[in-house]
Write a protein that binds this DNA or RNA. Sequence first.
DNA 1: TTGAAAGCGCTAACAT
DNA 2: ATGTTAGCGCTTTCAA
Lengths: 361, 361
Amino acid sequence: MSTIADVARHAGVSVSTISNVLNGRVERMRAETLERVRAAISALDYRPNRAAQQLKTGQTPMLGLLVPSIANPMYGYIAREVETSAQERHGYRVVLGNTYRNRDKEVGFFDDLLAHGVRGVIVISSLADERHFEQAVQRGLVMVSYDRRATPGASSAIDHVSVDNHEAARLAAAHLIERGHRELAFVTASGLTMSRREKIRGFRSAAAAAGLAAHARVIDGSASSDYGDSEMADVGRMLAARIAAERPRPTGLVAVNDMLAYGLLAGLRDAGLSVPGDVSVIGMDGLFLSSLMSPALTTVRLPVPAMARTIVERVIGRLADPDIPAGEFLFAPELESRGSVAPPPASASASASAPVRRRRT
Amino acid sequence: MSTIADVARHAGVSVSTISNVLNGRVERMRAETLERVRAAISALDYRPNRAAQQLKTGQTPMLGLLVPSIANPMYGYIAREVETSAQERHGYRVVLGNTYRNRDKEVGFFDDLLAHGVRGVIVISSLADERHFEQAVQRGLVMVSYDRRATPGASSAIDHVSVDNHEAARLAAAHLIERGHRELAFVTASGLTMSRREKIRGFRSAAAAAGLAAHARVIDGSASSDYGDSEMADVGRMLAARIAAERPRPTGLVAVNDMLAYGLLAGLRDAGLSVPGDVSVIGMDGLFLSSLMSPALTTVRLPVPAMARTIVERVIGRLADPDIPAGEFLFAPELESRGSVAPPPASASASASAPVRRRRT
DNA sequence: TTGAAAGCGCTAACAT
DNA sequence: ATGTTAGCGCTTTCAA
């Protein structure tokens, strides 16, 4: 690897001249000099040493990306979009970390980023406690959080980029209602994160709007395993057995995300129930895997590429100008209709428990 | 962030003393001094600046990880295992890059790693041309490649860690044969990578051993999209339609990987065929998603965590001692029997095309 | 047993 | 329009 001094020697100029062209300070430079420098750079195939630049400027074109587990297809999808956008649009590289939703791992990741001189970090978490994030910001990190709206009233020097979770769940429930379902359930893993709370509100508001408030329950459970990537699917599978046994049994299920929906699909099948014959299921996320399921999963699609672009722009933008205040960015979801939703079975709509549609409340 | 000078001042010693304890040179140090230094370090919550260390030593605890796309669940799985092992067992961080199987992107990634002072890289590729890898090694990178055995006779300063692909496909085909299948097909995406070639050989050898050489075809196709993560599944889905129309139609399908098998499952369903009633399907990889498919996919499981550990140990080991020669590391796969394999339908085994089992060749 | 000092490759005043 | 130089934070001889 050649250094800036090698290039200077080769071009017959001083190192500062090289540094100047490297940093675009070429206005008052003689064209001929610039030419010679450019030639020397490519002749030696010179690349500036980032560590040296970093030491000097405190800046380095790298971002941290924290995910619960990159083996989870949803995080893999987001990570791909984030990395691609950071790289192609801004020339930044991405340092990845799996946290398994563990606070200490998150803190350790922030420590290491700081030690490496990486100042921007993108966080996908769902930890209830947000204090170590604010602490990391105090220590100099510029942070953007995905899918976790700021706690109302909290200070937050952190950007928040997320889908409109309320709307997503509302869309899902409304779709079920529109297809004739009268017994609904929102199915989720235990642990109330901000986003789950909003999804539940959206689900309930759709039900209430149709006069179905009393027929919209929330069913949750936790996985046996501590943290695996099949965790969500495991929860869905387990809850499916419970749902199959409920009376009245809900005919329309809104899953908190696609992975949990996959578990629901498998679990309902195990229980001898047909989807969408006996029970309709709708997911949230819009993973490409959903179209491969049997039946293909109807889902609420998140605009992941657009969200990723915003996330990256925000970190890099605020890295360049620390005065830009943190903000919230909400994206609109979209219903993707496939095969897992159908009208409820005749027996269900004839049942005594089913209220008349749009009855007064 | 405090510096080594701050710590030295705080402890009332020189910076070299601090550096000495940082680097474990404490044998001939007075216990009391060591104590004071340790106290100062934790009092100031001091972390050495990695960029400065890197500049001085040329080393930094980071690894590059190159994948075609992290949104592909298999690469996500491997990436998680690699990152976790690098972090927890060696204290290394991981820089991730998506290449979309694009040569220029791979080269650009190597360039950036070098510029950042990252010397170790793990590569998951399937590009036919390996020259830019060797070039990167020349430029100073220590490289480990996943699932791509060295071209026989090639120089290779690159470690190769992979599953025994021949054995994996042999296992799959043997399982089908053992269940009574007589018309077999190996289904894959077009483009002969090293690993696909070996899988095909393994598939054929199992068929030959059962006297079924003439009844074991290879079916391949390419996706319409350039590179998407659903690429493999798309290929499977498309090929399923073709397979459904074949006469005699194979009853036992070995898919080159799980993702393609998912596409096969969906496509066969589209074609009105039942799995495993009409056709049996077996995948390769052992993704957790496979157990969620309908029917649950029988597959050949790769020992991913063990492979990831070896991969990481090799890069880091050879980073520490460049004299260690590159090697090949082969792992044994294992059959995971689930619901997508059953005996062939009676009509198939009665067909004129079916040879007698173990007939002489 | 500890300290002084040179230097890794770069940037950016400041000089010229 | 270009050159000189101090210094970013650390490691490591070499000296004391």
